[in-house]
Simulated assay, not measured.
Amino acid sequence: MTVKMIAVDMDGTFLNSQQDYDREKFSQLYQVMKQQGVRFVIASGNQYYQLKSFFPEIEGELSFVAENGAYVVSEGEEIFTGEIDPEIIQEVLTILAKFKQGHTILCGKNSAYVNEDEPDSFIEHGQKYYHRLKKVPNLFDVKDDTLFKFALSFPVEQVPEVLVQLHEALGDKVIPVSSGHGDIDLIIPGIHKAHGLMKLQELWGIKNHEVAAFGDSGNDLEMLKHAGYSYVMSNGQPRVKVAAKEIILSNDENGVLLKIEELLGN
């Protein structure tokens, strides 16, 4: 079996519950990947600036499918940037105002934005995933950035119901996907993690059957269906487990690194 590209989701997949990973083991496997010419890609709903902070020594060598595919950066170079039409941004913000239990972060290329009236607890939660997060008086007035995603937060038990309501309210302006922990991302139709992987595959001449992907949540579904080798964590969402070829050990049992070790034949 030939794997030329390994794509990993971060939260609930590559990262353990402490928001970290076995850095020593990864470092050894990364050297093997380099020797074998295997590309390592981080594919996450999170912000590029947050994702690269997990790999300080090598972030300039890696590729990132950030913001669920809306921002793709390879070796420090921008490969793809999505954009939501400014009119649709206004329409979606108007619709979201009716969801009283929800909190909203508006995500752009230069920064993410949050209303300064949001509770401190939510802003602190947001800063974990968005290292560049600006407080603004009104999200409707954010204009000087390329905006490509909404990140919403709801009480966990409401998420299934809210997803249905958002689908109905938003039509096909933006697509709601669950990203775990009560978080829901609204993404550009057709711009998801698999789309980001395809941009990198074009760059490197890698076929779908040469891709291995790892995930745990609804925003990983397209990527798992796209990849020749697809793995879902034992802690993953039930409907995601059905989409993958194999269920592996959880994110707290080094599931991803042990499977990568196996794929590399080490």
Rank of each mutant, 00 (worst) to 15 (best):
F26I: 03
H125T: 08
L224Q: 08
M33R: 00
E24G: 06
Q28E: 10
W204N: 06
V8W: 09
S179V: 08
H226F: 15
E61S: 09
Y21G: 05
E262L: 03
Y129H: 13
G82E: 12
S217Y: 13
L224G: 06
F148K: 15
P176Q: 13
L263F: 02
L96V: 01
E161H: 12
K100Y: 06
G37T: 01
G190A: 08
N251F: 12
S153L: 09
K134G: 07
V156K: 08
A7K: 10
H226I: 11
M33P: 00
Y30T: 00
G45V: 09
F80N: 09
D120W: 04
G76V: 10
A70G: 14
M5F: 06
I42M: 14
L15I: 05
L93C: 02
S74D: 14
D252T: 07
Q28V: 12
R39D: 06
L147N: 04
E246C: 07
Q201D: 08
G60I: 08
G12Y: 09
P160S: 11
H195P: 15
A212F: 06
K225C: 06
L200C: 10
I58K: 04
A212K: 04
I206Y: 08
V38F: 01
F214A: 11
V114I: 02
K25R: 06
S250Y: 07
I84F: 02
I88W: 09
S44C: 13
D141P: 05
I248A: 05
Q31N: 05
G190Q: 09
I6Q: 04
E24D: 12
Y30K: 01
L29V: 01
D145R: 02
N16Q: 01
S63V: 11
L221Y: 12
P160V: 10
F40Y: 03
S250T: 07
F26M: 03
D9V: 10
A194M: 14
K149F: 11
I247P: 08
I58E: 01
G45R: 09
P160Y: 05
S44H: 14
T2I: 01
V32K: 00
Q36M: 00
Y48A: 10
E261C: 01
N235L: 11
M223A: 07
L258A: 11
L29Q: 00
T94D: 07
I88S: 13
I260V: 09
I247Q: 10
L15N: 09
D252H: 03
P155K: 01
N219Y: 06
K245T: 08
L197I: 13
I58P: 02
V136F: 01
V38T: 03
E78F: 11
C107I: 05
E83L: 05
F99N: 03
I187N: 08
F80S: 11
D120K: 04
S17E: 11
F122T: 01
V240D: 07
S250R: 05
H181V: 10
G82R: 13
Y130K: 05
P176V: 14
S234D: 10
F54S: 07
C107A: 12
A112D: 04
G69A: 13
L200E: 08
G196R: 14
L258H: 09
F154S: 07
V142C: 00
E116W: 03
L257M: 04
Q31W: 06
H195K: 15
